[in-house]
Design a protein around this nucleic acid. Structure first.
Lengths: 104, 104
DNA sequence: GATATCGTTAACCCTATGGTTAACGATCCT
DNA sequence: AGGATCGTTAACCATAGGGTTAACGATATC
């Protein structure tokens, strides 16, 4: 509903589904069995993934084929990259400071 | 409580706080003003960030100094990297397939 | 046509989440 | 001591989140 990729990834089952789909498209059954919850629960998780644009669904007869739509996830990945770059810079600054300190 | 970095990042205000702290340590006031919510709301967001290990707090007199503790966020970043690598591989496979197809 | 299979929808439940106001604790400043 | 400032705690509220069972719709299979 809020189209937030981090929200989509905030539940381990949804991350699990994404992991499986990262290996290639799969039916709902293939992509979601073994998580230890009921089918309606799965349906809801899929709805979140679709609403946020992470997963696309194509109905093929009575099965539904899911595939990953990584553009939205890329937004999250890019955010993480930017943050990580800042952490690194922060580490470098601290490092530099400690070196300067050591010279006195 | 569940120590899940994605959960910590699933709210825009918490991501905002992380972004500010990525620029360097700051007091609660410095890191959290301007989000348009009350102070108790901020306190709760900070609690989530602390519980998940993303942020550390050192009390300095009446102010509290917050600093980023990126190890936990790195877990999330690493997960994103692994996934991204898989998407790329998936793209390559599809690319390869389309090329093969074109040769016929 | 009857039945099995894939997956969803409907209705419901409980807890977590995110917000508020009011009051407080602790420190700093005159 | 008295007041301003930083931030938290307490109590409460509304909604979202994640789960269930029961029933269904639509396709496939015998």
């Amino acid at each position: 509903m809020v189209n937030d990729p981090f929200r989509a990834l905030s539940h381990p089952i949804r991350r699990g589904i994404v992991e499986r789909l990262a290996a290639g498209p799969a039916t709902v059954g293939e992509a979601t069995t073994g998580f230890g919850v009921s089918k309606p629960a799965i349906t809801k998780h899929l709805r979140v993934l679709e609403d946020t644009g992470v997963v696309r669904r194509v109905v093929e007869g009575r099965t539904h084929r899911l595939s990953l739509e990584p553009e939205v996830l890329s937004l999250a990945a890019d955010w993480m990259d930017r943050q990580r770059a800042l952490w690194r810079r922060l580490f470098d600054v601290v490092d530099e400071y400690l070196k300067e300190e050591a010279h006195r």
